[in-house]
């Protein structure tokens, strides 16, 4: 059986969020919800300042606290290591959000894609409304709706349930890489099988000293980070007193 995992090369990453935008696109995710996100930090004071960027997503933890706490097994592990969610069973208690140390699970507070439900028209007769546009185009709730998402999950999740990254399990099933991996212009995301000793991710994990987020919690995340986002050189120095 496979155990899917991801390596993110921070040096290659340019912090452009193509991963997150394409993710939103692939999975028909509503505004304000980020299956793929980031942690940024501006450190130092002028002029010794740097901006750091760590792309984040569901870590698909081996020992996932969200799965342990879910009362209805809506949040569950798949055989291939993916932490999956079944919105049909989700009662919306948000305990997974309390349990997740990474802040990657989102709750649908309102109807998804509010923007596209609007029926108002800007210029009468001259422009359409978001709802009309979607209908005309033939999308579902959003004009650029991706029906392929439906293969393993509701295409758009309803109000009252949580949602999060699924490692694009619907794509993996068809032998395709997760969309964020595919869409990364910098090739900073490398996807593969931890159980396959010859996989590219195992090569990288062996080559560098990868780190994972909040490892001390023992969740055993499946997202590994290598190298530095800002691996700048600096003039050699021993400092001084």
């Amino acid at each position: 059986m496979s155990r899917y995992a991801m390596v993110i090369d921070l040096q290659r990453c340019t912090g452009c969020s193509s991963c997150s935008i394409s993710c939103k696109n692939e999975n028909n995710v509503s505004d304000g919800i980020y299956w793929s996100g980031k942690i940024t930090e501006t450190s130092g004071t002028f002029p010794n300042v740097r901006f750091h960027y760590i792309p984040t997503l569901c870590n698909h933890c081996e020992d996932a606290p969200c799965v342990r706490g879910c009362p209805t097994r809506a949040m569950h592990k798949l055989d291939n290591g993916i932490t999956m969610h079944n919105p049909k069973k989700c009662i919306g208690c948000r305990y997974c959000m309390i349990n997740c140390p990474y802040g990657v699970i989102y709750f649908n507070w309102s109807n998804p894609h509010e923007f596209w439900r609007d029926k108002r028209v800007l210029i009468k007769g001259g422009t359409s409304s978001p709802a009309e546009e979607t209908r005309k185009v033939g999308g579902k709730e959003i004009p650029y709706y991706n029906p392929e998402r439906e293969a393993t999950l509701s295409g758009i999740r309803a109000k009252g349930v949580v949602e999060k990254c699924t490692f694009c399990d619907h794509r993996i099933k068809k032998g395709k890489l997760p969309r964020c991996v595919d869409a990364c212009p910098a090739d900073a995301r490398i996807f593969g099988d931890l159980d396959d000793p010859k996989s590219q991710i195992n090569k990288l994990i062996g080559k560098f000293r990868p780190f994972r987020l909040k490892e001390s919690l023992g969740t055993k995340p499946g997202v590994f980070y290598i190298r530095d986002f800002s691996s700048a050189a600096y003039p050699r120095t021993k400092g001084g007193i």
Binding site: S18, L122, G126, T127, S128, E133, V137
Partner: peptide, 22 residues
């Protein structure tokens, strides 16, 4: 392709696009 390219989709299906001459 860079991040802005994806926004083309939202431009294409912008509900406020002119649909007829005015």
């Amino acid at each position: 392709c860079c991040p802005r390219s994806h926004l083309g989709l939202q431009q294409l299906y912008d509900p406020d696009r002119l649909k007829v001459p005015m």
